[in-house]
Design a binder for these strands. Structure first.
Length: 356
DNA sequence: AAATCGGGGGG
DNA sequence: CCCCCAGATTT
């Protein structure tokens, strides 16, 4: 953070003027929701645009408007119809919120989209930024917005350090969004900032040569505009530990099919055990193990956690019947079984084969 | 494979 | 306050 919000208002106005002027010449003006920008149409487009880019949204938006031309039609429709037209867009909770907000507007606002920012923000699925976008784009009211594009422009221009997901950083960006907000031309300002972030001040390789704000932009001056906004700190993944038993008998190894959902769903893996290998063997087979051998542990990374696997080889004197358990099977050790195997399981099978 | 997007919900 | 999530696209 190098600038101060307290800089003279006149400076902020200059920036707004530049963006508004840029928007006249380089912004988008003919998107379907821009031609008749009612609050209802702008609302639907904004929700769709939160998750999908413009070219994909257009056909969805048009089908949506044909089926639900106005707010009350949407409110009266079964939510399943709404979800049907949403299918392919993902984030179905947003479609549900859209529908339930339409019901609220029908029942509590007489079917007219509310025009007070507080009332708009109170609707399900609409937060401060979306409320500001709807009222400025549809009605020309001056409200700040702070979507991903605007965050990027402001964070770079003012070199606002830190990840915008942090409350303090978001608060600072909102302050800046308020400070830059012009009293007039709210539509051009809002649309211009979004377009600037989407087409010029892009996440990677921003086109500063064609940016109306390059002069005065702290990020551009630094030569490394991509340093802002700060990235989400990637949290160290928690370490989970498990013990895998590798039961071996008569040249075969026992694998179990994992449940269909969850980690390694439907793949084959070694049994994971809590109690001692010998106790497991006695409970499961009524057999005393011939030998157990604890191997060096190995790690496997998942998106949400890291798994430390403690492999334990368990030799049995003979191969027990695996009665009434179609989810476990003794596979010959001399070649890899032709079933889906979790990566660390294949690795362990290779080692087992080599050391057999 | 990882980062991203705005709002909602829970700790 | 912070963390996590939904899901598909982009890098």
């Amino acid at each position: 953070m190098s600038d101060s919000v307290a800089s003279p208002a006149i400076v902020e106005k200059v920036i707004a003027q530049k963006v508004i002027e840029w928007h006249r010449h380089h912004g988008r003006h003919d998107l379907p929701w821009q031609r008749t920008p009612t609050p209802y149409r702008v609302w639907v487009s904004e929700i769709m645009l939160q998750q999908t880019q413009v070219t994909t949204v257009i056909p969805y938006f048009q089908r949506f408007m044909e089926r639900f031309p106005d707010l009350v039609t949407l409110a009266d429709a079964p939510v399943d119809d709404v979800l049907h037209l949403w299918s392919g867009l993902g984030y179905y909770a947003r479609a549900r919120n859209l529908h339930s907000a339409a019901v609220v507007i029908r029942d509590e606002h007489g079917g007219r989209f509310p025009e007070a920012i507080d009332a708009v923000e109170a609707l399900p699925g609409i937060g401060r930024s979306t409320a500001g976008a709807i009222l400025s784009l549809a009605l020309g009211q001056s409200h700040p917005i702070l979507d991903g594009n605007v965050k990027r422009v402001l964070a770079r221009y003012h070199r606002v350090d830190g990840w915008p997901g942090r409350t303090a950083v978001a608060r600072r960006l909102w302050e800046l969004a308020e400070a830059h907000l012009p009293e007039r031309d709210a539509r051009a300002w809002t649309q211009g900032m979004m377009d600037l972030g989407a087409t010029v001040c892009t996440r990677s390789r921003p086109d500063c040569e064609h940016c109306p704000l390059a002069d005065g932009c702290g990020g551009h001056a630094s030569g490394e505009p991509e340093r802002w906004p700060g990235k989400k700190p990637k949290k160290a993944r928690p370490l989970r530990k498990t013990r895998m038993l590798m039961p071996v008998a008569e040249g075969r190894v026992l694998l179990q099919r994992r449940p269909p959902a969850g980690i390694w769903g439907g793949l084959w893996a070694f049994p994971e055990v809590e109690d001692s290998p010998a106790a497991w063997s006695r409970t499961r087979f009524g057999l005393e193990p011939e030998a157990t051998e604890t191997w060096a542990s190995l790690r496997h990374g998942f998106s949400h956690f890291e798994l430390e696997i403690q492999p334990i080889r368990l030799d049995l004197p003979s191969r027990p019947e695996t009665v009434a358990d179609t989810n476990s099977e003794w596979f010959p050790l001399d070649h890899p079984p032709e079933v889906g195997l979790a990566a660390p399981v294949s690795k362990l099978l290779d080692q087992l084969r080599r050391r057999h």
